[in-house]
């Protein structure tokens, strides 16, 4: 099991489009991916669960990955949050 802490750098928070991006990326891995915010833990492969977090700008999230490809998953997710999902760059 691997755990990392990330911060939402996107000004509008994790809105639906970004939630979609996140879910898509998490679904690429076999590992189980959970996100925790304010002691609430959700499944990161479900878009409505991610949307239920309402992760606004500046909020701190903990990502917990568990499975055979957890190393790749953690590094990809860390990059994703750091780069703000490359929002507006695509």
């Amino acid at each position: 099991m691997k755990t990392i802490n990330v911060k939402v750098v996107n000004k509008n928070g994790i809105h639906l489009r970004l939630a979609g991006e996140l879910v898509k990326n998490c679904s690429r891995f076999k590992s189980d991916v959970r996100i925790e915010k304010n002691f609430e833990r959700i499944n990161a492969k479900s878009i409505l669960s991610v949307a239920s977090l309402g992760a606004e700008y500046g909020s701190e999230l903990t990502i917990i990955v568990n499975g055979q490809d957890e190393d790749q998953a953690v590094s990809l997710l860390a990059d994703l949050f750091k780069s703000g999902f490359s929002e507006g760059k695509k």
């Binding site: 509008n12 639906l16 309402g54």
Partner: peptide, 17 residues
């Protein structure tokens, strides 16, 4: 529906801030 949910989400995060 997708746009409505997206709007709800953005509003929620805004008001929280």
């Amino acid at each position: 529906a997708a746009k409505k949910l997206d709007r709800n989400l953005i509003d929620l995060m805004q008001s929280r801030k």
